[in-house]
Design a protein around this nucleic acid. Structure first.
Lengths: 211, 211
DNA sequence: GACTGTGAAGCCATTCACAGCT
DNA sequence: AGCTGTGAATGGCTTCACAGTC
């Protein structure tokens, strides 16, 4: 791997390319050019090539890329197929939906346990995934070497849960609670803020209508 | 408003500031500095000031910002409180969760109708929101002047739904389907790709462990 | 001729540092 | 003295344009 700092946006685009390639691959296409990838993912050909160039040379000049091969390379880069061990905290509406979200499973992220503080839910199964009590998180994460936790609890509990997960030795947190978590640098965090996205949309609509 | 192009990241940060200020306001704090906002939202003081400066002068030199006032200004900028009319398409797991998501309602985005192609669901209510048949989307959007639609249908149907919404005259689309939608430029789109976020996290964990 | 890979240029966002105000 | 507002400097991402390869 080259020793250049890779922009996070480039990584997110790689993820989109991979999704597109997976779909293209199914339809039987073998070869593809940077221009076609760009057209299918809403980017530019130069950017597609640059993003890939951060990691190596995957194409053939004058020809293009082999769809299956390129997709495999990108999956390697992203760490897909590493068999990540994932848990989810918060069996509310959003948590339940995420537990059953096909988009995670199909990309190799399989949630193996759900934790909740509602004892009525503990012991049940959420679409085959067992629901356990919050106070079992620490032991479970340590014993099963869990890599990633998805936080889908109400705002007020998010930081406490995050602290607990950090103490347990979690490597990454995907946070759906609309709060800024305080997390040590060596633990990776991604915030998915649903309301923020609606507000950006709202802003863009207003600006667009003014022109 | 100044005639400078505003970075979209700045807008997303404004949204986070606002959320933070709302919370701070509740706890009774009246005045706040850019440094405190930065500390509470994971940014830098200079960036907070710059983000605000795109839109005007909201603070007092030597003093800071009035929490309530600043929050109101930001809400105006973002178009919150404009009484947006919002519908959701796709009453599956994710769609149901989003319909009941408190983070939307508390920020002024109230989903008023849900559409689904499953006739068993049509006529029911999802947490008080009526579920209607997909073929009623066009009329409903036109008659009720719907501004924003949230797409939470399976990938394969997303583009068709998007086309239908565009034809109906929708202004903005928040898309949860993991596909790149083809939409005319005057309609605003935001993609929330849940799997992409997990994949970026996965990438970051791998990179972090190599160092 | 077609398309990749890449240095260089251009553009945009962030950070710095300080003038201006309270 | 403390904090905002902002031009200038820096840093980073994107686009350009072309050499290299098939």
């Amino acid at each position: 791997m080259k020793n250049v700092k890779i922009p996070e946006v480039a990584v997110s685009r790689l993820s989109v390319y991979s999704r597109f390639l997976t779909q293209i691959e199914k339809s039987g296409v073998v070869r593809i050019s940077s221009g076609e990838i760009a057209a299918g993912t809403g980017g530019t050909p130069a950017q597609v090539r640059k993003d890939l160039a951060y990691f190596g040379e995957f194409g053939t000049r004058g020809v293009g890329y082999n769809v299956a091969e390129l997709n495999k390379e990108i999956c390697n880069i992203l760490g897909i197929g590493k068999k990540w061990r994932v848990i989810l905290v918060g069996a509310g509406n959003l948590g339940s939906a995420l537990t059953q979200y096909a988009g995670f499973k199909s990309r190799g992220f399989d949630i193996e346990a759900v934790f909740d503080n509602d004892l009525n839910k503990v012991g049940l199964r959420l679409n085959d995934t067992p629901v356990m009590a919050i106070n079992r998180i620490y032991d479970y994460v340590v014993e099963n070497k869990i890599d990633i936790a998805i936080i889908a609890v109400p705002d007020k509990h998010a930081q406490d849960i995050a602290d607990l997960l950090v103490t347990s030795g979690i490597k990454g947190i995907l946070n759906f609670a609309p709060v800024t978590l305080n997390i040590p640098e060596d633990v990776q965090v991604r915030n998915v803020d649903l309301a923020v996205n609606l507000e950006i949309l709202s802003f863009n609509i207003v600006v667009n209508n003014k022109e």
